[in-house]
Amino acid sequence: MGLEEKLPSGIALTTVEQIVGLARKSSMWPATFGLACCAIEMMSVGGPHYDLARFGMEKFGATPRQADLMIVAGRVSQKMAPVLRQIYDQMPEPKWVIAMGVCASSGGMFNNYAIVQGVDHIVPVDIYLPGCPPRPEMLLDAVLKLHDKVQNTKLGAHREQEITETEERMLRRSLPLVSKD
């Protein structure tokens, strides 16, 4: 492969995108956004049994200004929605959101006057995690999937192109089970 073989040992070649992705994913600081039942499972993940520290994420930021991942753990009420958005706005870019549990993802079983039917009405969501509440292992899985996504995120013009392509693909997608004609 040419150049790599001529390099002295201790030097590796990669892309800027990969290096940035590695840096971003390896020290992701979640903001504590525990709301309901899922918050307890989120705290369990931080505990010794599941140990989120293995993925460099044990530092749950008390302030949104030092966090880049928001784990929305629980049902978001209409009263909480503006607070959630404010906290999201206070987080510095780049930032990611995991909607933990069905309530945060879609409103879940609480399809009523009080609950926002999915936190994606308020903030953009990167990972939807099902379960009521999801097991801690499921949250770990979601975190790893997010890490993978962050690692492979493109930058600049590539990113814009990626967004366009994804959008077109999603529009073309046909849904199984129920035909849409």
Binding site: K79, N111, Y113
Partner: peptide, 30 residues
């Protein structure tokens, strides 16, 4: 409820307030 909420939601004449849920093209009412 938030301070600016209208109505008293647990009265019987107040609707539950759910939204129709769409799943793969089919819709389930609240």
């Amino acid at each position: 409820m938030p301070d600016d909420w209208h109505g008293h939601p647990q009265r019987k004449d107040y609707p539950l307030g759910g939204i129709p849920v769409e799943y793969r093209g089919a819709t389930v009412p609240p």
